[in-house]
Computed example of a mutant assay.
Amino acid sequence: MNERTAADAAHGDPARGDDVRAVATSRYAEGAPGNDDVRPVPAPSPGRADVAFDIPGVSVGTAEYTEGPTGCTVIRFDGAARTAIDARGGAVGLSGGYEVHQAIVFAGGSVYGLEAAAGVGTGLLREQGNRTHWAALQHVSGAVIYDFSARDTAIAPDAALGRAALRAARPGRFPVGRCGAGRSASVGKIDFSRAEFAGQGAAYRAFGPVKVLVATVVNAVGVVVDRDGRVVRGNVHPDGRRRRPADDVAAGLGSGDGPAPLAGNTTLTVLVTNARLPERSLRQLGTQVHSSMHRAIQPFHTEIDGDILFTVTTDEVDLEGTTATGLGALASEVAWDAVLSAAE
């Protein structure tokens, strides 16, 4: 967690002048300013660092409305990349859901943020010279997180912000930190007074010729847990210690004093590989990796989460020397690294 204390982290990033618990006191205020009131201007959203990756044909762009604050992230593919989607939890926010993609868009703003994906679609249409033949159609899916609980505005990513993120897309770099769709993401909301900001994370590994990129926007009701079993983000108690939500639930069970988790969460993930996989194996790869993420996020896939994982292949190399299950085991570790990256 860098050099910040648990208490510092609970109050957000002092350098950015925000406090996740302070803004929570005014959330849902009647008459909160929205896009039409403020007319926000798209701004760059670079995050704290970039994760380098080497998968040809894949580029990433981010943009944000600082007035929100909220943002979106665009993952763009040359050609049409085959995709499998694994959606879980009780609060999924998804548009499109195609089997091939030219772009996938993650955004804040809950259901209103789905407009960002529409903006990316029209942006790609213009790039294609407004060709509308069925073979030229651009397939764009959107998925959203509920980030209103960590801010006091009704501003949401829209078509203009989606197009700005598309214009910012560059190959080989995935911005991480409080940027893009993770600009106002938070975790550990078993009680919002104990929540902490999280963000967008990514990790990349090459296993011989096979490459795996996993990126995730962590906005979970659960906490982030490292490989030593320590809670590293979320559910910070007044004594400055982070605790597992299960311990708090067990302590209040039957007494009427248990915590009431805040609705409106969701973790969005994309796994990109260059391995050529049959449709069934591609789907199962996503299921396996998504299931593995419960090690890093506890609890996960709850009724108030809307977790989605997109598994995408660029179909560049044959999978040799291992099975799709073996690839899933390796990719699951990359996914854990990506979650921890979002919590740094």
Rank of each mutant, 00 (worst) to 15 (best):
48 R>T: 05
128 Q>W: 08
341 S>I: 00
176 V>Q: 00
249 V>P: 01
128 Q>I: 13
221 V>W: 03
159 A>R: 13
110 S>C: 12
321 G>F: 02
99 E>C: 07
156 A>Q: 09
60 V>I: 15
191 D>Y: 06
11 H>I: 09
10 A>Q: 13
337 D>C: 11
313 T>Q: 02
101 H>M: 05
251 A>C: 11
214 V>Y: 01
215 A>S: 14
37 D>N: 10
209 P>T: 13
16 R>K: 13
336 W>V: 15
113 G>N: 08
167 R>N: 13
331 A>E: 01
322 T>K: 02
69 P>S: 14
99 E>H: 14
127 E>V: 09
229 G>A: 12
324 A>M: 09
178 R>L: 11
309 L>W: 07
151 R>K: 15
17 G>P: 00
37 D>G: 08
205 R>P: 03
104 I>T: 05
276 R>P: 00
292 S>V: 05
109 G>I: 03
227 R>A: 13
195 A>F: 04
42 P>G: 07
129 G>E: 03
15 A>W: 09
142 G>Y: 03
63 A>D: 01
247 D>H: 10
238 P>L: 10
103 A>H: 05
22 A>H: 04
325 T>L: 13
37 D>I: 12
271 L>Y: 02
291 S>K: 12
151 R>V: 11
14 P>T: 10
344 E>N: 09
71 G>R: 04
28 Y>C: 12
165 A>R: 06
285 L>I: 09
114 L>K: 10
93 G>N: 04
298 Q>H: 13
246 A>Y: 08
334 V>D: 00
275 A>C: 04
145 I>N: 03
72 C>P: 04
96 G>T: 05
179 C>Y: 08
241 R>S: 08
324 A>F: 12
38 V>S: 01
114 L>E: 02
64 E>R: 15
164 A>Y: 01
134 W>G: 09
148 F>K: 01
